[in-house]
Design a protein around this nucleic acid. Sequence first.
DNA 1: TTCTGAATAGTCGGTATTGACTATTCGATT
DNA 2: AATCGAATAGTCAATACCGACTATTCAGAA
Lengths: 173, 173
Amino acid sequence: MSMERELLLLGLLQQQDMHGYQLHEFIERYMQSCVDLKKSTAYYLLDKLAKEGLILSSEEREGNRPPRQVYKLTPAGQAHFLNLLRQNLATHLPARFPGDIGLAFADSLPLPEIHALLQTRRSALAEALAAAEQTPPHTGSLQLLIEHQIAHLQSELAWLDGVIDRLGHTKPG
Amino acid sequence: MSMERELLLLGLLQQQDMHGYQLHEFIERYMQSCVDLKKSTAYYLLDKLAKEGLILSSEEREGNRPPRQVYKLTPAGQAHFLNLLRQNLATHLPARFPGDIGLAFADSLPLPEIHALLQTRRSALAEALAAAEQTPPHTGSLQLLIEHQIAHLQSELAWLDGVIDRLGHTKPG
DNA sequence: TTCTGAATAGTCGGTATTGACTATTCGATT
DNA sequence: AATCGAATAGTCAATACCGACTATTCAGAA
């Protein structure tokens, strides 16, 4: 498993014991800007971490609900978490831009159509930025992620505007 | 397969017939900023596109070299390519920041250590920016990708400097 | 000419990831 | 008290993906 996903699960469990569903909910709600982790993948990875002895699972029932597996960090897991954390903080992990692939082939379409399509993209981007700016403030480091997202989207918007602008001045042929 | 990878392969074959190895070489050399596509994955996806009738493969030998599969777009593939291209250009695909996961759990380490680790990250980031700025200019839309990468890395560097700076002023406790 | 290292051109077994599905419970509504 | 939709808590078969490996050719050194 990639180190980011591993760090993510261990990190959340280090803050608080949780069961799989809860873990996935939290990630979807508050961390969608850094990872996309499907529910079934989360369960798969939790199983694997348990087999590696980094976390322990125990049954628990609440009210009439069917029993569920609650996970907690082992001492080995705690140590491993700290190592991954150090490694993550010290490394620059390049972000990928899947939207650039289209740009790379844009010459296959007539200029006015490219312009119209990029205007649509611009709107979507501006909306994402507005949504990020609307996010209510969070505590501690989650706030950091929101601010990062906003700074990034602002830079993206400025860049896209530059691209759209230059599109008009392109000499045909 | 994700639409980006599909668009990428069809797009390259639309510009020029190629064989698998060549395709992968090009992607590694010139498009590492938008995708990470392993060689074996490229072959797997080419097989799949062929099965879907979007590309055709034919044997070809050059000199004494063993024969190899050369791929070309079918008319269906060309049409599909244009649709994917329109969709890609019109959509904002959010980038992910795996480096943010560490930041989210930074409070697990003492402040001076976080500071030291982030300085290391900053160096790596600055180096990546310098490398991007050193890239010799390219023709057409590939130049666009390089400029995007530079703009992005500049924004990342400014943001990281802000984070490191605020770290010093944080009141402990 | 024989060896060695780099470039070319892939294949294959195993791991990671996910979409689609199951099943239970709860609260509200009829 | 029966029904319906949303929330909870997962499972599983199928796909996607990749690391490590194989095999050939070529250029240059010994």
